[in-house]
Simulated scan of single mutants.
Amino acid sequence: MKNIFSSIDWKKTGLFAAGVAFGTAGIKVLSSDDAKKVYTNCTAAVLRAKDCVMKTATTIQENAEDIYAEAVQINEDRAAEEDAKVEESLDEEVSADEEGAE
C-alpha cells in the first residue's frame, strides 16, 4: 500500500484539486447577482460606444457624399467651360473662313 502513495505525483494532484475548487467557486462568482450587474453595465457601455461609432460613421459618410457631389459639379463646370471654348474657337474659324471667302 505504501508503494501506491509513493508513485502519486502530489504536486499534480494538488494542482488538479485546486483547479476544481477554483473552477467551482468561479462558476458561482460568475453567476452571482453582482457579476450580472457588471455584465449588464459592460453591455450598456458597449452599446453606448456602438452608438457613438455609428454617429461618427454617419457623419463621415455624409461628408464624403457632399465632397463627391461637389467634385462632380466642379468637373461638370470645367467640361462646360471647355465646350464653350471649343465652340468659341470654332465660331472664330467659321467667321474667318466666311471673311476669306468674300
Rank of each mutant, 00 (worst) to 15 (best):
F5K: 01
N75H: 04
S6H: 10
G14N: 08
N41R: 12
D51I: 03
N3Y: 05
N63E: 15
D9G: 05
A64Q: 09
M54S: 13
I8V: 03
K55F: 05
T13W: 14
S95R: 12
N63I: 11
S6P: 03
I4K: 11
Q73F: 10
I67V: 14
S32Y: 01
I60Y: 11
M1N: 00
A57S: 09
S95I: 02
N3D: 00
V72R: 00
S6C: 01
A64S: 09
M1A: 01
T58P: 00
D97L: 15
R48I: 00
D33M: 06
C42A: 11
A25D: 03
E81G: 01
A35G: 01
A84I: 02
D83W: 14
E82A: 10
F5P: 00
W10S: 08
T59Y: 05
A25G: 11
A80E: 06
D91I: 11
T43E: 15
E76H: 05
F5T: 05
V38C: 03
T24M: 13
L30D: 09
G100I: 11
A44Y: 06
D9M: 03
K36T: 07
A49F: 10
M54K: 13
S7Q: 13
D51L: 09
I67Q: 12
Q61M: 12
A21C: 02
E92C: 03
N75C: 05
F16W: 12
M1E: 02
E98T: 13
V38K: 11
K85C: 05
Q61A: 15
S32M: 04
E76M: 05
T43P: 02
A18C: 04
I74Q: 12
V72W: 06
G14E: 04
N63P: 07
E92M: 12
E88Q: 06
G23I: 07
M1H: 02
D91F: 05
K50V: 14
K50C: 07
N3E: 02
E62N: 15
E102C: 01
E87K: 15
A44D: 10
K12A: 15
L47I: 07
T43R: 12
D33E: 11
E81M: 10
K50G: 04
N75Y: 02
K55Y: 08
V94Y: 02
D97V: 13
K2F: 09
N75L: 06
E62K: 12
D66F: 10
F5R: 03
V86L: 06
L30E: 09
K2Q: 00
N63L: 13
E87V: 01
E70A: 04
T40K: 11
E98I: 13
A21G: 00
F5V: 10
K85M: 07
I60K: 14
K50M: 11
E82D: 07
E70R: 04
M54D: 14
A35T: 02
E65A: 15
A69W: 03
D9E: 01
K36G: 08
A45L: 08
T59M: 08
T43W: 10
G26M: 06
A21T: 09
K85T: 05
G23M: 07
I4P: 09
G19I: 00
